[in-house]
Amino acid sequence: MELLPQALMDGIMLGAIYIIIAIGFSLVYGVMHVIDFAVGEWIMLGAFAGFYLTEWTHVEPMLLLPGVFVVFAAAGYLFQPLIHRVLSGHRGNPLLMGLVFTFGLGLMFRGLAQTFFGFYSHSIPSRFSNGSFFLQGGGFSTTVSSVRLAGLVYALAITGILHYLLKHTDFGLGVRALAQNRDAAGLMGVDNKRTSAFVYGIYVGISAMTGVLIGMILSLSAKMGPDFTIFAFFVVVLAGMGYLAGVPAAAFLLGIIQSFFLIYLDPGYTLLAVFAILYTILLVSPRGLFGKGV
């Protein structure tokens, strides 16, 4: 029983990280109709950017996050038109084209990273890594490392900012309009290419920042990407494709499943369990946990 609160806390923190990965992934799917299988590689590249920047500058990695965001957001913004071209040519089945293209992109990034950054695992040293909090209440007690707590705060902040951006700004109105009816959004004057490029930029920036955070909390390596791609995909499908409001519940569920497996059972079976649960839920409710997906 002593481990239960620990497992729950870890699960919540992992879940918080999955939320931000999955929200960006879901947003890109909603606006651009691209299932971005390179999401894990954007995370990996961000993690390496954080790792090398910390090594060179000795600045606290938490403080590097805004810089990493800006650089990667700009890269994503400039990169998006290429994806747009792949999808909007006269090729059949743009959804499949997007999937294949980003899958290939992910492979390429991974290969380049293994060539240039090597095969080793690293972690990003942070001042927060040493400290920890001792939480007690109701007969349970658990320790929470401060870096994980910082991760939770970061995830909540990003989710809050994205929520505000989408629900309370005209930019967000345009994004939602595009996701819900592309032609009608155009008639309202929403510039599809520009808005999509902004969305992709924001998503790449957030994914890269999250990569830095993962490098601080867990570890980073050139081949870390696919795990996170799979988890992002899991969360988005479980939440219901394109149903953003379902993402937090699905992400926390994944985080908690994963941490329970790590603590109580064999971590090697985590993926097996995760997919067994995904399939079971999709069998019962094909449009996600809440039945509100596409």
């Binding site: 939602r176 309009a177 819900q180 009816n181 032609d183 009608a184 959004a185 008639l187």
Partner: peptide, 12 residues
């Protein structure tokens, strides 16, 4: 253009 079939944003 007020398009045929309304073309509203359904989730708004």
């Amino acid at each position: 253009l007020v398009p045929e079939g309304r073309q509203l944003f359904p989730k708004m």
